[in-house]
Design a protein around this nucleic acid. Structure first.
Length: 458
RNA sequence: GCUCCCUUCGUCUAGUGGUUAGGACGCCGCCCUCUCACGGCGGUAACACGGGUUCGAGUCCCGUAGGGAGCGCCA
């Protein structure tokens, strides 16, 4: 059975690169009817925070990337790491290193000065008399030969052991380090496929060496290239939103973000739109592109509007409610949100935008003076007041009836529909932009329409 | 500096030796239209460079250039 894992370190929110990796892991597990595990790599006690853990969990939840196991916390597995490190020590596959940080620092400086790659020189690996004082535990990396593995995305990758040094697996305070905990966990959790960022490529041969020393079979690896900012540089805060939840705040639907992310580095022919069910069927590691991809907000926005337009309005309304609440809009003062979605879907690229544009259906409006001056001129006042009369005489308040009144009045006064609809729009919504006038007025409700028409313009 | 990775329109990508190099986003134009949009139609634009291999190279090989990552008692 396929078992994948997503293993973020809780030192910040879940960013979109991590979300994509999580998505790929999740999809691959679902596709193969395997298991997807969430593991929190919190061994850096200095930088890990509970808030970050929660932020990651919340983001995974919003994206609906549910996990079959976990979250596991590495800080709760320290005994296990200690046990494995002891075993390695006992078997002579690891050793205690008493080198001071000063000596290491000096060594590094010398190597750098000689234009060599800085690495541990194996001083304590070869020492004969017992050391003294605080020590770390280092893994005895093979001194010759090569490590080879078949990356599912990049093909065969080869590293020479002479490039690798004896890395620290336990710090002097006894806590385990990253490359060691990953190995122990992947082994214990029987991970079959490690899908992760390509910044881990260089860690892979080290991890494979430790795995082999432990007598474990290394998992399959798939290294995904990173996501670049729109300028082709490493993605960072200056490119705008990088946190998954920031996208929620900006009005994106999780399905749009997911669809965008999956296509950023993966493709299935020319297809752009994928439902989650389709993805589970079609996703394959083979389709992942080797090259890094630049994040393009415009395309995400296009997808977002696509999902706003095509998703079940009830579903969109549920997400829109979050934004309306955020704006403090009292939804009891206007139409059902689902009707708003139906009317606004085509004219809002984000839910945030939709929420802002829809306040007029619930709250008092502000008039755009320029629009008023330009559209509500003396010559249209008679039409407005006649329309108002027609509206109040209407038996049923629905868009067909509303449309009938507007058309009748326009014809009677010899005006084109536009000449009447636009002033009506400004009078009832405060500005020149809204859904079709009949739909807008129906949504507004007779009470608001009549009031707004009589307030200033009759 | 050393090791490793990457390179098709501005961006995401299709392409697996023979294509007018296709699609999507964006942008531009036209149409539709009560505003804004939606939609429809059309246009713009790419194989980083240099050598090979081959009858033939975006596709295979080797260099060059450019970009990125790693080289911590961070993950």
């Amino acid at each position: 059975m396929v078992i994948t894992r997503f293993a973020p370190s809780p030192t910040g929110y879940l960013h979109i690169g991590g979300a994509r990796t999580a998505l790929y892991c999740w999809l691959y597990a679902k596709k193969t009817q395997g298991k997807f595990i969430l593991r929190i790599e919190d061994t850096d006690l200095e930088r890990s925070t509970q808030e970050s853990v929660q932020a990651i969990l919340d983001a995974m939840d919003w994206l609906k990337l549910n996990y079959d196991e976990g979250p596991y916390y590495q800080t709760k597995r320290f005994d296990r790491y200690r046990e494995v490190a002891e075993q390695l020590l006992k078997e002579g596959k690891a050793y205690r290193c008493y080198c001071s940080k000063e000596r290491l620092e000096k060594l590094r400086e010398e190597q750098t000065a000689r234009k060599e790659k800085p690495r541990y020189d194996g001083f304590c690996r070869h020492r004969t008399e017992p050391g003294e004082g605080p020590f770390v535990i280092r893994f005895k990396n093979p001194e010759e030969g090569v490590v080879e593995f078949d990356d599912l995305i990049r093909g065969k990758l080869t590293f020479s052991n002479t490039e690798l040094d004896d890395l620290i697996i336990a710090r002097s305070d006894g806590t385990p380090t990253y490359n060691f905990t990953v190995v122990v966990d992947d082994w214990d959790m029987k991970i079959t496929h490690v899908i992760r960022g390509d910044d881990h490529i260089n860690n892979t041969p080290r991890q494979i060496n430790i795995l082999r020393a432990l007598g474990a079979t290394p998992p399959q690896y798939a290294h995904v290239s990173m996501i670049l900012g729109s300028d082709g540089k490493r993605l960072s805060k200056r490119h705008g939103a990088v946190g998954v939840m920031q996208y929620r705040e900006e009005g994106f639907l999780p399905e749009a973000l997911l669809n965008y992310l999956v296509r950023l580095g993966w493709s299935y022919g020319d297809q752009e739109i994928f439902s989650m069910d389709e993805l589970i069927k079609l996703f394959d590691i083979k389709g992942i592109n080797k090259a890094p991809a630049a994040f393009n907000p415009e395309k995400l926005t296009w997808l977002n509007q696509h999902y706003i337009k095509t998703s079940d309005p009830e579903r969109v309304a549920a997400e829109l409610k979050w934004h309306m609440d955020k704006l403090g809009v009292d939804l009891s003062k206007g139409p059902a949100l689902v009707e708003i979605v139906k009317a606004q879907a085509e004219r809002a690229k984000t839910l945030k935008e939709m929420a802002e544009k829809s306040k007029i259906f619930y709250e008092d409006i502000k008039y755009n003076d320029e629009a008023v001056q330009k559209n509500i001129t003396a010559d249209v006042l008679p039409a407005l007041s006649e329309i108002r009369e027609g509206f109040s005489a209407l038996k049923d308040w629905n868009k067909e009836a509303i449309h009938g009144v507007v058309v009748t009045v326009a014809e009677k006064l010899g005006l084109k529909l536009g000449k009447v609809a636009q002033p009506l729009r400004v009078a009832t919504t405060g500005d020149t932009i809204s859904p079709p006038i009949d739909v807008t007025l129906e949504l507004l409700g007779r009470e608001k329409v009549l009031a707004r028409l009589s307030n200033k313009f009759s």
